[in-house]
Design a protein around this nucleic acid. Structure first.
Lengths: 200, 200, 200, 200
DNA sequence: TATGAATGAGAGTTCATTCAT
DNA sequence: GATGAATGAACTCTCATTCAT
């Protein structure tokens, strides 16, 4: 779908700063998610896009800068989740199965887990995950069950985030079967059970 | 001359190959779990123990070798879990709270997630996690509930493993509150709910 | 459109090639004198003036070219020195004190000492300093003292140049006190003694 | 005289840390004096000695560290100058002529003038030159002339240091003739005149 | 003419590893 | 068996420069 950018001369993308920057960003996201911060080399990222290494410095300042940009450009986790337990479980199942992430090792959540020591990165990471937890909590907030409103509602939401993080890791980094190749459909039942059990 | 036992780093450990090796292994486990494979330097590990860098080469062959040995020497996850949902939930809660791992960033599960390149490492990792899933399944297997015996029983067990992995990551690498500082006691309720919901 | 003169950097200098070139030259002189050839980046020079980096290439060809131009545009050392030992000593004192060079680290003699590689640069440098020595010799040449006309008169003049160079270096690069902050007045006596002693 | 080090196996110096370190130091001193801090590359220094680049890091930590070590290992300027104007002038002449420094472009004073931005380096530099000035002052201190004891005695001593610095620069970096190839003998007269005139 | 996207070469630094002693 | 000197390869980063527009 989004293979080629806006108005690029197809063959060799040349002299289009925006497109180059975007391509670098995507390549970086993939590399960071797949092999982590340290193992990702800027040479590889540049080579993926087919441009010179120095452009990364030009556009992102440094490796840290590229990482932060890649992190910031990641899609929001658990975005637009309709209210209600059923739709939450369904959204979780879908996002954790290969359906929405054919190349699962590039799942944005994986990048979140790769360290870089930097303080700002840690903050970005935390914000992203806190946001996901909050959105999960919101999706459950309309329910009448006492647990939804309880003091530890956020904790329960975070446990669902943890579940998602764990599934992503086990799928991609470990390849644990049958989890690694389960479909959204097959995942739906157990996830629904977890959500219900957690909020009972 | 003086043979020191494992847990007694008396004065200057001298000429006790076994103790030195064990100390190196523990130092390596801590470093790998805390900062990951790439960021761990052999010099640091050797310095932690106070021995020469070349000893690591001698004992473990290479950095990969040390990592594999550290992985293999990790405590088994979910070991000795009594049968029954309640005890399973309790065991999970305990292991995921700071209670059993005061220095949570050295939790063995964290080391499992580091470094991906080597094939043998991936295998070790998978075995460790498959074993945990199997033991969880066993702990539930004696129950009479239909889900325990269902075809996707293993999948459900793996979801619990995923939950554990995710919690460990969020606690240590991200420091997501309130999850990061929750006690085993506070964790028990929600975890129990999840186990019950999953197996309902 | 609006033609700005040399010393009036009004608003945004536009379309005045001469003024831009002159501004670049001055900025380059300052940078080269202050931090040396290698540490001066063309980006910095361009930024100082507020023009595009490529303009330097256009006007001066290369970094070497800019350096040569900056060197060639430097004010002549020991220019217009009236004849006689007293006026020579006075001229030396004045030029080596902060009086005439409030920003002493931009003193033109400092630029002369930077960068060595290029052959042409060495020639320019030598010419500038030979000229200064010659003018010093001329200023003394009208005197009746036998030393003025002696075969090593030039050598003696060069020793005065050396003194000047050394003072400039010690003032700016090293900050050697009390020399670094001495006034022209305080310098006058000792310098006069040196000139007299040298020519006695 | 000091071409080969202590007990080196002549052919290829191997496995002698002390000798290697010393050789690196000497090579660094030469390079720094000749082309300055920025233009000196660690690869060149290592190549001069015929060892691996990484050894410089091992022994000196960094380029800055190497520079500081080279500076600290430099011979003291104006060391062991006997008291009296005549011997001072003679010592100055000798040190500034090719006599004592056949390869004049490696003269230690040249290294002092090459910047590196570092604060500690500036301090080292200043100390070395202050020491030289002090020793010059001491050499003159026994005289009965009023100027020796005057408040600006140090300033006058520093002017002699400046003269030395300037001569060194003009000899090596600029090659100003006839100064550049003057003998100690030819230099003696003018220098003596300067010292006398300065202290009159 | 002037801009800025893109490049290539080389810098210091870091690390696992190897090799004499 | 154990030490530490020495190596090679790779990394990030920096800069002058070139090339389309």
């Amino acid at each position: 779908m989004s293979s080629d950018s806006t108005s690029a001369p197809a063959g060799r993308r040349r002299r289009d700063a925006g497109a180059t920057k975007q391509a670098l960003l995507e390549a970086a996201q993939a590399r960071f998610a797949q092999v982590g911060y340290e193992s990702t080399t800027l040479r590889d990222v540049a080579a993926d896009v087919g441009v010179n290494l120095a452009l990364i410095k030009r556009y992102f300042g440094s490796k840290e800068g590229l990482f932060k940009a890649a992190l910031a450009a990641s899609p929001r986790l658990m975005n637009d989740v309709p209210a209600g337990r059923a739709s939450l479980a369904e959204a979780l199942s879908r996002q954790l199965a290969t359906d929405s992430w054919p190349e699962f090792d590039k799942h944005p959540v994986l990048m979140l887990l790769r360290a870089s020591g930097d303080e700002q990165v840690t903050a970005l990471r935390r914000e992203a995950l806190e946001g996901a937890a909050q959105r999960i909590l919101d999706a459950l907030g309309t329910g009448s069950s006492p647990a939804d409103r309880s003091a530890d509602g956020l904790l329960r939401a975070e446990l669902l985030v943890a579940l998602g993080v764990g599934v992503a890791v086990l799928r991609s980094a470990v390849g644990l079967e049958p989890l690694a190749s389960v479909s959204a459909e097959e995942l739906a039942g157990p996830i629904q059970g977890i959500v219900d059990g957690l909020m009972a």
